[in-house]
C-alpha cells in the first residue's frame, strides 16, 4: 500500500517537473498558461500528499487561480493590442527578440544543473522531519484563541508577517494603479450570454463558499487568504459579467476597502498594547473574537485587492488631458 502511494508520489513528481518544462517550452502562450495552471493544480495535489491542505487550498485558489486569471487577462490584452486576438497561432506579437547565444544558454544550463545537484545534495543530507516548531506550537496552541494550528501561526504567533503580507498586497495594488493610470479604457474580456447567466446563478453560492472557507479557518483548513480568493473570484465574475461596473464615484470606497484589512490589523495590534502588553499580544479571552475580526476585515481587503489587481486601472480615471483635473482641485 505504502509502496503504491510512493509510486504515485514519484509519478506525480515527474509529472510536475514535466509540466514545468512544458510550460516553458510550449510555443503558444495560451497553452503555456494552461500548462502552468495544470502545474499549479498538480502542485496542490502534491501538498495534500504532504499533509498541507491549507497550503494546497491557497495554491489552488491564489497561486493557480488568481495567477492564471491574471496571465490570461494579460495574454488577452497583448493579443488585442497587437490585433492577433483571433489568430490561432498568435505567438510572437513583437518582432522576435534577438536570440540568446547558444553558448550563454549552455553555460546557464550547466550552472542551473550544478545548482540543482548542489541543492539536492544539501537537501538529502539535511535532517528531514527533524527539528521544527512542532513542540513550541503545540505548547502555545491553548493560548492562541483558535483551534487550527496554521491559523494560529498566521494570525497570532507570526501575525506580524501576515500584516506585512497584506501590506505587500496594498503596495501591489497602488503600483498597478500607478502603472495603468493613463491607459485608455480597455474592455475586460467579454463573456457570452450563457456565461453571464451562469455567473448570476453561481454568485450567491460562491459568496457562501468564500465566507464558509473563512469561517472554517478557525478549526479546519481554510482562512482569510483562501476565503479572500474565493470572494475575489466573485468580484471577477461581477466585473466580467458587467453586473458591476467600476465608476469614478467608487474610487474612495475602493481605496477604503484596500486598506481596511491593514488598518484594522494595525489598530488591533496597537490597541492591545495599551494595557502594558506587547504589540500583537491579544488579551486572554479576547484572542478568538479579535482574530475573527482581523480575519474578516483582511478577507474583505484581500478579495477587493485581488479583484482590483485583475481589473487593473483605477476606476473612472480618464487618460489625458482629463488627467490634470483632479490635481487642480
Amino acid at each position: 500500500m505504502t509502496d503504491l502511494l510512493l509510486l504515485f508520489d514519484m509519478l506525480l513528481g515527474l509529472l510536475i517537473i514535466g509540466l514545468a518544462v512544458a510550460a516553458l517550452r510550449v510555443r503558444d502562450l495560451f497553452a503555456m498558461v494552461v500548462m502552468f495552471v495544470t502545474f499549479g493544480l498538480m502542485t496542490a495535489l502534491a501538498w495534500v500528499r504532504l499533509a498541507a491542505p491549507d497550503v494546497a487550498l491557497a495554491e489552488a485558489a491564489i497561486g493557480t487561480g488568481v495567477t492564471g486569471a491574471l496571465l490570461l487577462k494579460t495574454l488577452y490584452h497583448l493579443r488585442r493590442v497587437s490585433g492577433t486576438l483571433h489568430l490561432p497561432e498568435a505567438l510572437s506579437e513583437r518582432p522576435p527578440d534577438p536570440q540568446v547565444p547558444r553558448a550563454v544558454i549552455a553555460a546557464n544550463a550547466v550552472m542551473c544543473g550544478l545548482v540543482v545537484i548542489g541543492l539536492a545534495a544539501a537537501f538529502v543530507t539535511a535532517p528531514l522531519g527533524g527539528p521544527g516548531f512542532d513542540a513550541a506550537v503545540a505548547d502555545a496552541m491553548p493560548e492562541s484563541g483558535v483551534d487550527h494550528p496554521v491559523t494560529a501561526v498566521l494570525l497570532n504567533f507570526r501575525a506580524y508577517d501576515t500584516l506585512m503580507e497584506v501590506v505587500v498586497l496594498l503596495a501591489a495594488v497602488i503600483a498597478v494603479w500607478l502603472v495603468e493610470r493613463s491607459l485608455p479604457q480597455s474592455d475586460p474580456p467579454v463573456m457570452g450570454e450563457v456565461y453571464e447567466g451562469f455567473a448570476r446563478l453561481v454568485l450567491p453560492g460562491a459568496v457562501v463558499v468564500g465566507v464558509y472557507v473563512l469561517w472554517a479557518g478557525a478549526v479546519a483548513p481554510g482562512g482569510a487568504f483562501q476565503g479572500g480568493a474565493v470572494l475575489a473570484a466573485v468580484g471577477l465574475l461581477l466585473l466580467m459579467s458587467h453586473v458591476y461596473e467600476p465608476a469614478p464615484a467608487h474610487r474612495a470606497a475602493a481605496r477604503g476597502l484596500f486598506v481596511l484589512g491593514v488598518a484594522v490589523f494595525t489598530g488591533v495590534a496597537l490597541l492591545v498594547a495599551w494595557g502594558g502588553r506587547a504589540v500583537f499580544e491579544y488579551p486572554p479571552g479576547l484572542a478568538k473574537p479579535l482574530i475573527l475580526l482581523i480575519e474578516g476585515m483582511v478577507t474583505i481587503s484581500i478579495a477587493a485587492t485581488l479583484a482590483a489587481l485583475f481589473h487593473g486601472r483605477e476606476p473612472g480615471v480618464q487618460p489625458r488631458p482629463a488627467d490634470t483635473s483632479e490635481g487642480a482641485q
Binding site: 497602488i174 503600483a175 500607478l178 493610470r181 493613463s182 480615471v317 488631458p321 488627467d323 490634470t324 490635481g327
Partner: peptide, 21 residues
Amino acid sequence: RVARSAETARPRQYFWPLWLL
C-alpha cells in the same frame, strides 16, 4: 494642492503612499 503640470498630477497621488510603504 495644485499640481504643477500634467506630468506630476497623477504621480503625486501615488508617490506618497509608495514612499511611506
